[in-house]
């Protein structure tokens, strides 16, 4: 603790920035762990539920049980789109895309929902990447500044003994150490979460293809039932 309290103003500022990076990184790590864990678990459960029911209206009624699954979001958006199309067809109304085929509209809805869910899953991961790459450099800056300060003091005192040089360098090196402490968990967590999100994105792509096939196969009159 003395190393931190005895450090110069710039080094203290660097340590404060690094502390912010570290606290926020760990908050994101905890938060994303919960989010991705729930998304993975609910997606697996939703797929079982989806293929067991096979009726869109029944599936739509049970969606509240899979609130964290991105696949459930895709299904919900597609189902709402189909309902709106049906209402428009029954009422004889003309929407902006009334002349386009239903398949194309469903495909567009799926693409939009997939993009939205991917964005949600990847949210805050950029901060982890930034911490992993920038924190060591910020710490290094603090160290360089601290060593410059220490050498300036040595030059003023006129003594170059180890007792004079060592404390300043030791205080300066704390910044690099804390930078690494902030960066290492962030890099590990970032790689882990990116891998998990890629798995979920793959599942969403597969589900999109399956949904398009199902929509194409089912007769229009049965889609609402």
């Amino acid at each position: 603790m003395e190393l931190i309290t005895n450090a110069g103003l710039v080094v203290k500022l660097v340590l404060l920035i690094l502390a912010y990076f570290s606290v926020t990184s760990w908050a994101i790590i905890i938060y994303k762990t919960l989010v991705i864990q729930r998304a993975t678990r609910d997606s697996a459960r939703f797929l079982d539920f989806f293929w067991a029911r096979r009726r869109f209206d029944v599936i739509a009624q049970g969606l509240d049980d899979f609130r964290h699954s991105p696949l459930a979001v895709l299904f919900r958006d597609v189902h709402q789109e189909l309902l709106q199309n049906r209402r428009a067809a029954d009422g004889g109304g003309e929407g902006l895309d009334a002349d386009l085929g239903e398949q194309d509209r469903v495909a567009r809805v799926l693409r939009r929902a997939t993009t939205s869910e991917t964005h949600r899953l990847e949210k805050y991961l950029a901060f982890l990447a930034t911490t992993g790459s920038a924190a060591p450099f910020i710490g290094l800056f603090g160290t360089v500044w601290g060593i410059m300060d220490a050498f300036h003091g040595i030059g003023k005192s006129g003594s170059a003994s180890l007792a004079v040089v060592a404390p300043g360098i030791s205080e300066a090196l704390v910044a690099t150490a804390i930078g690494l402490v902030a960066a290492i968990p962030a890099v590990i967590a970032y790689n882990h979460f990116v891998n998990k999100v890629n798995v979920l994105i793959g599942e969403m792509d597969n589900f999109c293809q399956e949904m398009l096939n199902v929509v194409q196969r089912l007769p229009r009159s049965r889609q609402e039932r």
């Binding site: 606290v23 926020t24 990184s25 760990w26 908050a27 994101i28 790590i29 905890i30 938060y31 919960l34 989010v35 729930r38 609130r67 964290h68 991105p70 459930a72 979001v73 895709l74 919900r76 958006d77 709402q80 929902a113 939205s116 869910e117 949600r120």
Partner: peptide, 20 residues
């Protein structure tokens, strides 16, 4: 309409911040 976006609640991130 966007999907559920249940996890966008600021409360959960704030709780994670407190734990951190």
């Amino acid at each position: 309409r966007s999907g559920f976006h249940a996890d966008q609640r600021a409360g959960r991130l704030f709780a994670a911040y407190l734990v951190s």
